[in-house]
Write a protein that binds this DNA or RNA. Sequence first.
DNA 1: ATTCATCATATCACTTCGATATATCGACGA
DNA 2: TCGTCGATATATCGAAGTGATATGATGAAT
Lengths: 203, 203
Amino acid sequence: MLDVAILGLLMDRDHHGYEIRSQLRERLGVSANVSFGSIYPALARLERHGLVEAVAPGAPRAAAISTGSLAGERASLRSLRTSAGLGRRGRKVYRITERGRQEFHTLLADPTTVDDGKTFSLRVALARYLTPALRVRLLERRRQDLLERLAEVRQGADNPDLDAYARSVMSHAAHSVELDLEWIDDLLSIERSDSETFAHEAK
Amino acid sequence: MLDVAILGLLMDRDHHGYEIRSQLRERLGVSANVSFGSIYPALARLERHGLVEAVAPGAPRAAAISTGSLAGERASLRSLRTSAGLGRRGRKVYRITERGRQEFHTLLADPTTVDDGKTFSLRVALARYLTPALRVRLLERRRQDLLERLAEVRQGADNPDLDAYARSVMSHAAHSVELDLEWIDDLLSIERSDSETFAHEAK
DNA sequence: ATTCATCATATCACTTCGATATATCGACGA
DNA sequence: TCGTCGATATATCGAAGTGATATGATGAAT
């Protein structure tokens, strides 16, 4: 679901490929460094499908320059200079199209894809683009999946056929899933109190 | 690192492809269902490299039959019958070779590959095949990576540019990494107390 | 009897990864 | 001032993984 991630970043503002990689970590919480071997082909694909378009090299792009905070102590200095001057050599800045926006909402809400930890986190990070009802559906679906996984790893943690290391992995997986469940329950209770607030204000 | 996982399972006993998929979940704690589209090519690859070999269809394989506990309440009944009768149609059972064992130890201990959550868990699940010193190195390396990741997501959790959902993802990621760190510290303290026990007994 | 779920292997198109190549720019020291 | 180092930036390749789909055997249930 790299497509959703990229489109989600472009919903906010224009980006070029190199920047998307860092933004995935910084704004969407993606843990692995997504390789350029997936980002550039993905952008080409999205452009081919008319979901994004390249901004003309000379076009205004002041907002697309700031390089974020990960790059080190001199980042702010450098980014100031860069935004004052010209963009770098081959820099290709992409903008999301109207069709891209539609497709983004469809993909983000798509109920047929089963979430794993990564895609679920990604969807939550982009949850402001979902309706309250879709948010609740997303959370409850993941909750069910996690309950099943929990039963499985708890069984593994008690399995005397496994050695201490394998059992430890299972036991840690169980604790990790429990933490995930607490998080989801928190998010769900927030969704519910928000809708109460809304119902109250509607009176 | 599917190769290590498969070789690790075959260190214990012979397996066929279909069985490997369930064993990955049950014994090695792999959370995603690894697809057959990766397992069968991987087995073919390993056989091509001489790391595993197919046992003759009529060869003794009583130990390779039991189907595990996930298959439901009637599993034991069925497995009894199956082990009493013939093997299934195309079932191809693989055995690890001596070269395979060597390669397994090399891959498992390989210090050049950077672990993510999945490969690290996998290595811990197979940690009984590592020496105590290699286990400690594995754990401490991962510990360092997680400390860096923790700083990153904590920063994200406090980033006012992010909306509440994205910040929640970051904050949960931080808690999740903290849990991982506690686990690793537990494992490290066990390693240390084990080596003390050994030192004591050696006197 | 037939139909259904499970067991089992295999292959396909597409995506993703990791490595590598290429080039520019700014900073810093010799 | 020169060189080189690290960050910025795009691109491409082979290898590997995914999800879907096809095929077929076996045993259980109706």
